[in-house]
Amino acid sequence: MNLPKVVSDLVKTQNAFDSVAYSNCFSETAVVYDEGKTHTGRKEIELWIADANARYEATMQPVSYEEKGTESILKAEASGKFDGSPIILSYHLEIVDDLIQSLRITG
Rank of each mutant, 00 (worst) to 15 (best):
K81C: 07
D97Y: 07
E66D: 06
I95V: 14
N15M: 08
V7D: 03
S23P: 09
K75M: 07
A52W: 10
L3V: 07
A58M: 09
K75C: 12
I88M: 07
R42E: 14
L93W: 02
E44A: 13
L93T: 01
R104P: 00
V11C: 13
A76D: 05
N53S: 15
G80F: 06
L3W: 10
D98N: 15
A78K: 05
Y33N: 15
T106Q: 10
P86G: 07
L47Y: 00
I45V: 08
S23Q: 15
H92D: 01
F26W: 08
E77G: 02
D18L: 07
I88K: 08
E28Y: 06
A21S: 15
V20F: 02
G36C: 04
P4W: 02
Y91D: 05
A58V: 04
V7H: 02
A16T: 03
T38R: 13
S85W: 11
L74G: 00
E46I: 02
S8F: 03
E44T: 08
W48H: 06
F26L: 12
A52M: 05
F82G: 04
Q14R: 14
K75W: 05
K81S: 14
Q14N: 14
L3K: 08
D97F: 04
K81Y: 15
R104H: 15
L3M: 10
G69A: 09
P86A: 14
G84H: 11
T29G: 10
I105H: 07
S23K: 06
A78S: 07
E57R: 09
D97P: 02
I73W: 04
Q101Y: 03
L3S: 10
K37A: 13
V31Y: 01
P86S: 11
S23W: 11
G41E: 02
L93V: 00
I87P: 01
I88T: 15
G69M: 10
A52E: 07
A78H: 12
K68E: 06
L47V: 04
S72L: 00
V31L: 12
E66P: 00
S72W: 00
E66H: 09
S64D: 07
T70Q: 11
I45C: 13
F82Y: 14
K12H: 03
N24K: 13
T59I: 14
W48L: 01
P86D: 05
D18K: 06
N2T: 13
V31G: 03
V96I: 15
D18P: 08
S23E: 06
G36H: 04
G107D: 09
S8N: 14
K68L: 12
V11G: 04
T106K: 06
T38M: 11
R55L: 12
E28R: 07
D83W: 01
K81M: 12
I73S: 02
C25I: 00
T59V: 15
T70I: 09
L99A: 08
L89I: 05
K43R: 10
M1S: 10
N15F: 09
V6R: 01
Q14M: 13
Y22R: 10
A58W: 12
A30H: 07
I88H: 05
V96E: 15
L99V: 13
E77P: 02
E67P: 01
E44L: 09
L74P: 00
D83L: 08
S72M: 04
L93E: 03
S19M: 03
K81L: 14
